Amino acid sequence: MSVATRCTKPPLAVSGYALPSEQEVLRALGQVKRRQRLSTKTVAERMGVAPSVVSRLENQRKHPTFETLQRYAAAIGCEIGLVVVQDGRTIF
């Protein structure tokens, strides 16, 4: 799933690639969670946190670290990654 290619008004662009906002990433992950009919409790158990932590994350009352976003994504069966591009070539 590539959220970066679908954002319309990115806060930042690097080498011509738009980076999605935190809200766009959470919105996309929330859609995946709903499609899979996962409960907040299930996601919290998979992440090893309290359901209230997941709720705050999903309601965007908490600003997650990239690591937290990755853990949330993994809990719903997704991955989040960044690509580093230099002179049109992917270097990482």
Score class of each variant (00 low, 15 high):
Ala50Trp: 13
Ala50Ile: 12
Pro51His: 00
Ser52Cys: 01
Ser52Ile: 11
Ser52Lys: 04
Ser52Met: 10
Val53Thr: 10
Val53Ala: 03
Val53Leu: 08
Val53Pro: 03
Val54His: 02
Ser55Val: 02
Arg56Ser: 11
Leu57Asn: 06
Leu57Met: 11
Glu58Gln: 15
Glu58His: 04
Glu58Leu: 08
Asn59Cys: 09
Asn59Tyr: 06
Asn59Asp: 14
Gln60Lys: 11
Gln60Thr: 11
Arg61Thr: 11
Arg61Trp: 00
Arg61Ser: 11
Pro64Leu: 02
Thr65Arg: 00
Thr65Leu: 03
Glu67Phe: 00
Glu67Gln: 09
Glu67Pro: 00
Thr68Glu: 15
Leu69Asp: 09
Gln70Met: 10
Gln70Arg: 10
Gln70Phe: 00
Arg71Pro: 03
Arg71Tyr: 11
Arg71Leu: 10
Arg71Glu: 15
Tyr72His: 12
Tyr72Thr: 09
Tyr72Asp: 06
Tyr72Pro: 01
Ala73Ile: 02
Ala73Glu: 09
Ala73Val: 04
Ala73Gly: 13
Ala73Asp: 11
Ala74Trp: 14
Ala74Asp: 13
Ala74Ser: 15
Ala75Tyr: 05
Ile76Phe: 01
Ile76His: 08
Cys78Gly: 10
Cys78Asp: 11
Cys78Met: 13
Cys78Tyr: 10
Glu79Gly: 13
Glu79Ser: 14
Ile80Tyr: 08
Ile80Phe: 10
Leu82Pro: 00
Leu82Ala: 11
Val83Met: 03
Val84Gly: 01
Val84Ala: 07
